[in-house]
Structure formats: structure tokens, C-alpha cells
């Protein structure tokens, strides 16, 4: 666990870079978090996925896996990997300030 300053606010991140406390996240942190993941320009589709991850987590207590994202976010699996080449669910969860989604499929 480590403390990072994102958008001028100190937040706790775990070893993998996920928020320890999702309540510390604010929408102002998104562009800086995305940059940390190598995404320089956020498109509407990026935002759609990030918002979806966040709202699913808030509603269900866990973020969706890539398969669920592909079926329910309105963005196809192919496009998800184009938006987040380093793993759509994993990277979008980091940017959305939620824990890493767990699930094998």
C-alpha cells in the first residue's frame, strides 16, 4: 500500500495501483489516473466504460469482468481491448477508483 497524490489529493493505492478506499476517488482524478495507465486522450467510449465500471461497482459491490463488460456496457470486446490494451476491466477499474474485478471468465 502506498500514498499517491492525484489531482492534488492524497489517496491510498494498493500494490497493484487500485484504490484502497473507492470513496477517496473523484471524477477530477480520471485524466491523471488514465495517464498513469498510458492513456493520453480519453474518448467518449473510454468515459462510457469508466462510468459503467463505477456505477456497477456502486450498485453491486464488485466491478464487472471483461465478459460482462462486453455484454452489458454497450462496448464490444474488440473495442474494449482497443480502448484499454492492457486489460479493459483491470485498467478501467483502476481509473474508476474501484477494486480489481474478480472472476475467471
Amino acid at each position: 500500500m502506498s500514498t499517491s497524490t492525484i489531482a492534488n489529493i492524497d489517496v491510498e493505492l494498493n500494490n497493484e495501483g487500485f484504490f484502497v478506499d473507492p470513496d477517496q476517488w473523484t471524477v477530477d482524478m480520471v485524466s491523471e489516473l488514465a495517464l498513469r495507465e498510458g492513456i493520453e486522450e480519453l474518448t467518449d467510449a473510454h468515459w462510457q466504460v469508466i462510468r459503467f465500471m463505477r456505477s456497477e461497482y456502486l450498485a453491486k459491490g464488485t466491478g464487472p469482468t471483461v465478459r460482462v463488460l462486453g455484454k452489458t456496457s454497450g462496448v464490444s470486446i474488440k473495442e474494449l481491448y482497443q480502448l484499454f490494451p492492457k486489460g479493459p476491466a483491470k485498467v478501467a477499474a483502476k481509473i474508476a477508483g474501484i477494486p480489481k474485478p474478480r472472476g475467471c471468465i
Partner: peptide, 11 residues
């Protein structure tokens, strides 16, 4: 298949 899909999910 699960291992391949899981690998991609991890980037």
C-alpha cells in the same frame, strides 16, 4: 481457453 482469456484480461 480460460487461461488464454484470463491472460488477455490481465493485459
Amino acid at each position: 481457453l480460460i487461461m488464454a482469456n484470463g491472460a488477455r484480461a490481465e493485459g
